[in-house]
Design a binder for these strands. Sequence first.
DNA 1: ACGATAAAGTTCTATTTTAGAACTGTCAAT
DNA 2: ATTGACAGTTCTAAAATAGAACTTTATCGT
Lengths: 169, 169
Amino acid sequence: MKWDALEEEPCSLARTVAVIGDRWSLMILRECFLRKRRFEAFQSSLGITRHLLAERLKKLVRFGVLRRIPYMESPKRYEYILTQKGLDLYPIIMSIVHWGNVHMVDSRGKPLLHEHKSCGKMFDPLMICSECGEPLNAKQVHTHPGPGARQETLPAKAPAKPKASRTAV
Amino acid sequence: MKWDALEEEPCSLARTVAVIGDRWSLMILRECFLRKRRFEAFQSSLGITRHLLAERLKKLVRFGVLRRIPYMESPKRYEYILTQKGLDLYPIIMSIVHWGNVHMVDSRGKPLLHEHKSCGKMFDPLMICSECGEPLNAKQVHTHPGPGARQETLPAKAPAKPKASRTAV
DNA sequence: ACGATAAAGTTCTATTTTAGAACTGTCAAT
DNA sequence: ATTGACAGTTCTAAAATAGAACTTTATCGT
């Protein structure tokens, strides 16, 4: 697949995957949320090749997830910080971490615990419906084409059959 | 990087990324949540090469995310359905879709709308703290090493310095 | 009976990506 | 004058992916 093809798809998942859907981007973002900001810091804690790191950072900046700001003049040195768009990735990162906590831990338990400053407790993230507040699960969700759905290239033979899809994503 | 290295890391994000952290796995999972189950269905709707599709399906089965079940004897035909472990990926998929809805849509709006069967309304997913129920954001979260944290290979010189990390993942 | 079609892969070569290591340029410290 | 830090860039070899053809078992239409 060409990467660019993903961006063009009328699918919010595909478009997001075009931005963060590779191992290294997700690992770099983990480091960003852990307050790492500099090239050397990313490189040494991830073990990513310098070549790829430079490439991925460029991509994340290009997509507006990170901002590259100078922290030292002469020699020019830059660090990478999350933009609001980047900070908004937090639920993705947290749901990934949570799934790993549930399904990929060994007998010792979670590698990392999360404390919610607001309430002071160790927590897990929980995904709920914005409308009724109930926890979400795939089987309780229907999807419908939205305004940005793919343009139906009306086939001559098959007439439009606008039925709600019985699906979840 | 070797893929296996990720699995071994004492990090729930890395371990999860080892399972679903590539473009095609995420796209295949999208199709799964959209009730696609068969090889040909995945292949034609994604445009993935048959070679890679076979490979990714094997991986997802190996990790227990999908189950391969025969739906026809002679000729043997199989379909792939989400296990509970796979269904538990729903919050990841939904948070990815939601970020795309917020940050990657064109002027026409969302490609897909989600209806919560329980309450009958179109919704967005919202991530909250399991303990206090408040919406989560990165800046309100501290992390602490958990029981499954990396074994400190105590360096002779640097004495253990057990301070809470001021971080978020 | 014969060829066409279908599903679920497998096999092959060409192209693209990634790994791994070395190199560059600018400055500060010893 | 040499060493080291930082933020990259450049190079070659190895691995992954794209794209197309091929395989196997069985059904359908004529």
